[in-house]
Computed example of a mutant assay.
Amino acid sequence: MSHIMTLVAPAGGLQAPLVARIRAALNDLGGQAGTADWLAEEEAADLPFSLLAAEQATAIARGALDGAPVDCIAQPAEGRRKMLLVADMDSTIVTAETLDELAAHAGVQAQIAAITQRSMNGEIDFSTSLRERVAMIKGLPLAALQKTWEHIELMPGAEELVRTMAAHGAHCAIASGGFTWFTARVAERVGFQSHHANILLDDGHALLGRVEEPVFDRDSKLTILKQLAAEHALPLSATAAVGDGANDLAMLGAAGLGVAFRAKPVVAASARARVDFGDLRALLFAQGFRAAEIVEQA
């Protein structure tokens, strides 16, 4: 079979009759779907298929689901294991927007969160919005960074995704519109080998309300994806990227496996693959990893 449809649901949510229904729908509408290969019991399964484009098969599968909370990722069967992962951080590897959380210590969280939302939806320019938001926390004591970090939580499946890919030889990197103060700590905690983000400027005691120029933005994320692929002698088809906001769209579009994760509407509508219901382990299942191969949290 030329393609694979990976079906992923929250644990216990993927039942054999539902998988059989999707297989039948693919066959009824011009495809040739084979027997399901279960990657994780009642959670993830592969359906091999031919004679349909990935986009066609995805649309058919989603229609057959009739609203069931199952993610569908269709792609060519060849080369599905990726050797480079580039991940957004805020609302992707961690559950929060770190700048929004930091703003709470300056009493401007609501104002900054509103700007963040518009930026992630692609309504306003990211670089301009970042400069505006950082200016609003000028004078914030550096101790607020540590206080914010103490309350940051990892997205479910983040550590398993990174540690499993790294254990199989992949380079894993963060590319974030956030700040290196946080990406360095997330990288160490989760197991990323490198991290790339904006640098907050300070005077040794408090924030200056600026970041080092140029701003690390949408184009920067794409540049990092291409740069790391070149450094590791990889074609872009051998790369994976994951993110949720408009500034992730360029790298998601360029990566071999670009996944919009619980993404903003503009991103979910544009990405070739998306995960709305599963956790970040869905990216492992999409690459054909079985539950027994997943490296648990350190």
Rank of each mutant, 00 (worst) to 15 (best):
T183V: 15
N121Q: 15
L85G: 06
A263H: 07
G30S: 08
A166Y: 02
V19L: 00
R274H: 02
A64R: 06
A16N: 04
A292C: 03
L234S: 03
L280W: 12
S176N: 00
R290S: 02
V295A: 11
S2L: 00
A103P: 09
M165S: 03
F277R: 00
W149F: 07
G253S: 13
E41G: 09
D88Y: 15
L207E: 06
R218N: 15
E42W: 02
A271F: 15
A40S: 07
D244R: 06
L257N: 04
V190E: 03
E212W: 09
K147R: 14
L208H: 11
V215Q: 08
A106H: 08
L85Q: 02
T116M: 04
L142M: 10
A40K: 03
A45R: 04
D219T: 05
T116C: 06
L142T: 03
F216L: 02
R281A: 01
G177R: 09
V242W: 04
L52T: 02
C172R: 07
L84W: 05
A269H: 13
L140I: 06
E231I: 11
G191K: 05
T180E: 00
F192V: 05
D202K: 09
G178Y: 08
A271M: 13
S270F: 14
L201I: 10
A187I: 05
G243F: 03
A110Q: 10
R163V: 11
E101S: 14
